[in-house]
């Protein structure tokens, strides 16, 4: 983590979140440096979404304790694209931003959707809708991008394309990223660091030092994957 030493965008200390007296997050400590890409893995029900929603400031009524520092500008990408069906694509991208049509257009061009500004969300494919959601997030120049299984509903091929796109966009905009995913390979391909949540605690951490071209046939890749799967309790 050397390049990021000393600076933090996100700081979480001893975060506890409870639903009906059951601690879903049970003392989570996490720091994310500016521009760092962190992938969060965990079994279903381990509390990934709960952590992400806590960082996004959603569900303020949930019982909990701990220290939470997040930047001003946070963008969230959900599993569903969550585009307003009654607003055209461009209006969705600049939703709530005043006088930023031009930036919206540029943002759409960046995700490869130039020319579709006036389409209805219904007229786009699932992958295109998710790209609009990415444009909507990035046009706000977030310091922190939170994504909860953003590619979960996409087919494998579209997923691969989205990985490349996300890497390109993150390189250009340099937000800190917390990406929740089920997919170990996705985590290794995209992230600078992968963390594993289990029963409300962070149980493993892998700093990925594979360089930019990451291939699943690389023995180093396979070794990281094996360690992560082990942390997830999957025995091969």
């Amino acid at each position: 983590m050397a390049p990021y030493a000393g600076l933090v965008t996100v700081q979480v200390r001893d975060l506890v979140r409870k639903y009906d007296d059951r601690a879903v997050l049970d003392g989570v400590d996490l720091e994310i440096a500016p521009g760092e890409f962190v992938a969060l893995l965990g079994k279903s029900g381990s509390g990934k979404s709960t952590l992400l929603r806590a960082l996004a400031g959603l569900d303020p009524e949930v019982v909990g304790s701990g220290e939470l520092v997040v930047p001003q500008q946070v963008s969230v990408v959900f599993q569903d694209s969550r585009l307003l069906p009654w607003a055209r694509v461009l209006d969705n991208v600049v939703l709530g931003l005043r006088g930023s049509e031009q930036r919206g257009r540029e943002s759409l061009a960046e995700v490869g959707l130039a020319g579709r500004e006036d389409a209805w969300p219904n007229e786009l494919s699932g992958g295109e809708q998710q790209r609009v959601a990415l444009a909507r997030s990035l046009v706000r120049e977030p310091e922190l991008l939170l994504a909860d299984e953003p590619f979960g509903a996409l087919d494998a091929l579209t997923r691969l394309k989205m990985h490349a796109l996300l890497r390109k966009l993150c390189a250009a905009h340099q937000p800190a990223v917390l990406l929740v995913t089920h997919d170990v390979d996705e985590a290794i391909v995209l992230a600078d660091r992968v963390i594993v949540l289990d029963a409300g605690r962070l149980v493993a951490e892998e700093v990925i030092s594979l360089g930019l071209e990451r291939s699943a046939v690389d023995p180093e890749f396979a070794a990281v994957r094996a360690r992560l799967l082990d942390a997830l309790g999957v025995t091969l």
């Binding site: 400031g57 959603l58 946070v74 959900f78 969550r82 909507r136």
Partner: peptide, 15 residues
């Protein structure tokens, strides 16, 4: 879900 979206993009009550 749209209400949640409105919160995350910081819409004012009027918007």
């Amino acid at each position: 879900r749209y209400v949640e979206l409105a919160q995350t993009v910081g819409l004012s009550q009027r918007e």
